[in-house]
Amino acid sequence: MNNQRRTVLKSGSGAALLGILAAAGIIKPGMALAEWNKAAFEAKSMADTLKALGAGSPADSKDVQVTGPDIAENGAVVPVGVSSTLPNVTMVAILIEKNPNALAASFTLPEGTEANVQTRVKMGQTSNVYALVKSDGKFFMATKEIKVTLGGCGG
């Protein structure tokens, strides 16, 4: 009888431990994902995205450049670059106005990293591509229209 009780206790605590481990496993990625700006990436319109990024209505600036092709044959792979000569740039984001979610990527630039990043993005259709730059705590923007002949979101 005593032995049985011990076995029950043992398995009981074992299950509890498993539960804790599972909970820890679930909580971990969840917590890490919180860093990712979900509201900004899930926002549909440009205005909502800018709001979620805390950018308000950024001023247009000649000191921000969007580089990319004038016409992209394949919308699935469109090379886009952002560069700026503004001082103390801490954040750079790429927004594509007509994509299902405007925000494509955002970059945090620590001191010493130049405001000059290139990546490749998907574009569903011809759209304005915006570069958003945070310099000295203020937001600035530049835009370039990229024409897409073959969308990148089709099946």
Partner: peptide
């Protein structure tokens, strides 16, 4: 960097 689904 934070990526959305629009990155290739």
């Amino acid at each position: 960097a934070e990526f959305g689904t629009a990155v290739s």
